[in-house]
Design a protein around this nucleic acid. Structure first.
Lengths: 353, 353
DNA sequence: ATTACTTGCACCATCGATTGTGCAAGAAGG
DNA sequence: CCTTCTTGCACAATCGATGGTGCAAGTAAT
């Protein structure tokens, strides 16, 4: 009974086969048939036919009719690091558990790409959009608004849409303090030995920098602009910053606050060019958690953002009838060196076969 | 001129505004207007209106008409590791460069979820589907076949659809040999000191295990089944395998072949429970590349699968009119310890602002 | 037997875009 | 002035699913 290579069966095909009208077939197959007082026997007949012919609804047609698609989108800047890939993984699970279909797309932190991508998603009548790492959240907001699409910002505070953000200020404070305290009282960290690398002029970076400076000057004093080295979210730029620093100073700072795991990859590239000894005495704090990063040969303290809670809260907010544009803060977590946390992959069953 | 909160403009709205028919509007906006001999001036008028009213086509309607959507799908098992997240990242870039819209979904290595997800994608009339890490590629094939959707397997050899796979056998050979040669001639690795952890009964694992055994018995002799410890693709299971081994032997094997970075995370969890000294003398080979993994405190040799080449080849094959079901092998690359390779993120421009 | 419901389903417009076809007005040619 | 093109566009069917409305046949009530 297979339709090999043929077109897919439609309700019209089943309508002819069953002798019923297309609307009856439709009602039976989308579950509204009791409401429409279709006879039990008719329903059974049609359901059998549908199964035999492997009927599946054309969701574009349904979406066209409903102006909704059942799709829920997640807009990411990139996939290829543990923060965003965990985000995607968790998002998928949560959307599926709500009976919808998750769609993940990335826009490479390119404002044009972002808008084009969002327009495309809107054109497919996605029902909801979760936005994270957008460079221009307010323009994205404008598009969604115009199309009447519910949307929410994650870890980026748009002024116009509700947002769930990680408490970057507090996280940075915890991390900075942990770095400082990690040093022995016999050879404590001096103010000119603590630097921040990475980040750019986005909200998250600004907050982290603020937290870093506040704690640094409180505990060590001697704060100056020189200890902040923004490099954008680029491994190559970050590597260059380390090389430059090293050339000038002949060594790395003993205390390193790295703004994200992407920037941390810049340090890896630097490491590949220099012997082990270069890193004998350093302590790294990285704002992002990567399980492998936690086990490097020097102490790496990490901040794990609470992705599940952020998404959970986001789903909650987006479901509200009239979401307010308030900003919801979620606390991140400090992760000590040599720690392997469970992640979204642990939720996946993998029967060894 | 913004349509704030209103419905989106359609060709009918523009039809009324311009005084032209909807078909004329459609032709102008989809670029076929020259072919339809629409006057230059009419086109300009309509294009202006479209811009003023922020017209964007309803892609569900277009897709319904065309039975195509412009979407290209990638089916992943999971997002949250560097192999698959790199795959997603590279896929996105390649699809975009071809003017289509990439859609990435994961199915958690669950056969049911896989089929359901593919059915959903088919229902949206996706144009092409790239499949990787599916547990049941042949069923997926059957669905695609029935719907007439071009599809291709990546790193998993379906018998029924064309496949591009990584040369897992050769990769495993290189990796095994590199592990063995890493040991000093003064204290060479003995056959009972080399173990393989991870993997399950899928094609990739089988090939890797085959390569491992062949090289091991050739170089060290004394092969036995005991040195293969399959644990599925689960960090937790892998950790348990290490703990069990450690309890029994009082130490880890000096040579460790780890089947994937997911399994490597099991080793991280084990590491968290044991002091540094436990790992003083070991050499790890991991089949998968993770930049952070490459810099752990002991030598980690990794295999980087050539994702760009695999996808490139896949795009080439899927574009062929009549693709043959042959299997195309792509060579992976050995990565020495302490190596930070460039990745797909380097292609992303990040102007520091 | 007449009125009043209930049951079970068919009819048809609709969502927005696409495209084959047809046709009027004007230009060109005889 | 009468054909024959060409130009420029309108008409209407179509993709597949949905849901409001209408209506015949059957049942119950008076």
């Amino acid at each position: 009974m297979k339709q090999q290579g043929k077109k897919k069966a439609t309700i019209y095909d089943l309508s002819v086969l069953s002798g019923c009208s297309a609307s009856t077939v439709s009602a039976v197959l989308n579950g509204t048939w009791r409401k429409r007082r279709i006879a039990e026997s008719t329903a059974a007949l049609i359901q059998n036919l549908a199964e035999q012919h492997q009927y599946t609804a054309n969701l574009q047609a349904r979406g066209l009719r409903h102006s909704r698609s059942g799709l829920v989108g997640l807009l990411l800047p990139v996939y290829d690091n543990r923060y965003f890939s965990s985000m995607a993984q968790t998002f998928e699970a949560q959307v599926r558990s709500r009976g919808k279909c998750p769609i993940v797309v990335s826009a490479s932190r390119d404002p044009k790409e972002e808008l084009a991508t969002v327009e495309t998603l809107i054109s497919y009548s996605i029902d909801e959009l979760f936005i994270t790492g957008a460079t221009d959240p307010d323009s994205v907001h404008t598009l969604c608004e115009a199309a009447g699409i519910r949307h929410i910002n994650i870890d980026l505070p748009g002024t116009k849409a509700p947002s769930v953000i990680s408490d970057n200020y507090e996280g940075a404070r915890m991390l900075t303090e942990a770095i400082i305290r990690r040093f022995d009282a016999t050879r404590p960290l001096k103010p000119e030995e603590l630097f921040l690398f990475g980040g750019r002029n986005d909200h998250a970076s600004r907050e982290r920098i603020r937290g870093f400076r506040d704690v640094k000057s409180a505990l060590l004093g001697g704060d100056s602009d020189a200890c902040i080295q923004p490099t954008g979210y680029s491994p190559a730029m970050t590597q260059r910053a380390f090389e430059t620093f090293y050339e000038r100073q002949g060594k790395l700072p003993r205390g390193l606050f790295i703004n994200s795991s992407i920037n941390f990859e810049g340090l890896l590239r630097f490491m590949a060019q220099h012997p082990h000894e270069t890193f004998a005495d350093i302590v790294v704090g990285c704002y992002d958690y990567d399980p492998f990063g936690s086990f490097l040969p020097f102490p790496v303290i990490m901040i794990r953002q609470n992705i599940e809670s952020m998404l959970e809260k986001a789903f909650e907010l987006i479901a509200e009838h009239r979401p307010t544009n308030k900003i919801h803060l979620i606390q991140p977590e400090l992760v000590h060196p040599r720690t392997a946390l469970k992640g979204p992959l642990d939720a996946i069953k993998d029967i060894y076969a």
